[in-house]
Every structure is written in structure tokens, then in C-alpha cells.
Lab assay of single mutants.
Amino acid sequence: RQGFVPAAYVKKLDSGTGKELVLALYDYQEKSPREVTMKKGDILTLLNSTNKDWWKVEVN
């Protein structure tokens, strides 16, 4: 499932696989259909980080 999360809630990881991955630093509950819920410690695939406030991710 793809959607947006606050950029301040995730940290980029060095995956070494060519995929950009991020680590969820905090729990986040989606507040609109365009967002996704994540739990602290989740590893997500980063799809787009051009917006400084909201990053598009895919929940694996």
C-alpha cells in the first residue's frame, strides 16, 4: 500500500540494495486516504521525497 507520511517521522536508511528505505521513528495513524499508518520500527520503501514535509512511501 502506498501513501504519504510526515518526513519528520522517518529516517533514510542505507540499504545497499538500490531501493531507498526509511525507518519509522514514531507511530503514525493515517488521517486521510492519501496517508498510510506505520508503527515505530517499520521499514518502508521510499518512493518520493521531493516534498520536504511529506514523503511518499510503500508499506511492505
Rank of each mutant, 00 (worst) to 15 (best):
1 R>K: 12
1 R>E: 04
2 Q>M: 09
2 Q>S: 11
2 Q>K: 09
2 Q>G: 06
2 Q>N: 08
3 G>K: 03
3 G>E: 01
4 F>V: 07
4 F>N: 04
4 F>L: 09
5 V>R: 00
6 P>E: 02
6 P>A: 02
6 P>C: 06
7 A>F: 02
7 A>K: 07
8 A>R: 15
8 A>S: 14
9 Y>L: 15
9 Y>D: 04
9 Y>P: 02
10 V>R: 00
10 V>T: 04
10 V>I: 08
11 K>W: 07
11 K>H: 09
11 K>Q: 14
11 K>S: 10
12 K>T: 07
12 K>V: 10
12 K>Q: 08
13 L>C: 13
13 L>A: 04
13 L>E: 04
13 L>R: 02
14 D>K: 12
14 D>G: 15
14 D>Q: 11
14 D>P: 15
15 S>E: 11
15 S>L: 14
15 S>R: 10
16 G>I: 14
16 G>V: 15
16 G>S: 14
16 G>C: 15
17 T>L: 14
18 G>V: 10
19 K>H: 13
20 E>W: 10
20 E>S: 14
20 E>H: 13
21 L>F: 11
21 L>I: 09
22 V>Q: 00
22 V>M: 04
22 V>D: 00
23 L>G: 03
23 L>W: 05
24 A>Q: 00
24 A>F: 02
25 L>P: 00
25 L>M: 09
27 D>Q: 03
27 D>P: 06
27 D>T: 05
28 Y>P: 00
29 Q>C: 12
29 Q>T: 15
29 Q>F: 14
30 E>M: 12
30 E>Y: 04
31 K>G: 07
31 K>D: 06
32 S>V: 04
33 P>Y: 08
34 R>D: 13
34 R>G: 14
35 E>I: 04
36 V>H: 04
37 T>H: 05
38 M>I: 15
39 K>W: 10
39 K>V: 09
39 K>H: 12
39 K>D: 04
39 K>L: 08
40 K>G: 05
41 G>E: 02
42 D>H: 05
42 D>I: 04
43 I>T: 06
43 I>E: 03
43 I>L: 08
44 L>K: 00
47 L>S: 02
47 L>D: 01
48 N>S: 13
48 N>V: 08
49 S>A: 13
49 S>P: 05
49 S>T: 10
50 T>K: 11
50 T>H: 10
50 T>F: 10
50 T>Q: 13
51 N>S: 10
51 N>L: 09
52 K>I: 11
52 K>R: 12
52 K>H: 11
52 K>P: 15
53 D>P: 02
53 D>C: 14
54 W>T: 02
54 W>K: 02
54 W>D: 01
55 W>E: 01
56 K>Q: 12
56 K>S: 06
59 V>M: 09
59 V>H: 14
59 V>A: 12
60 N>F: 13
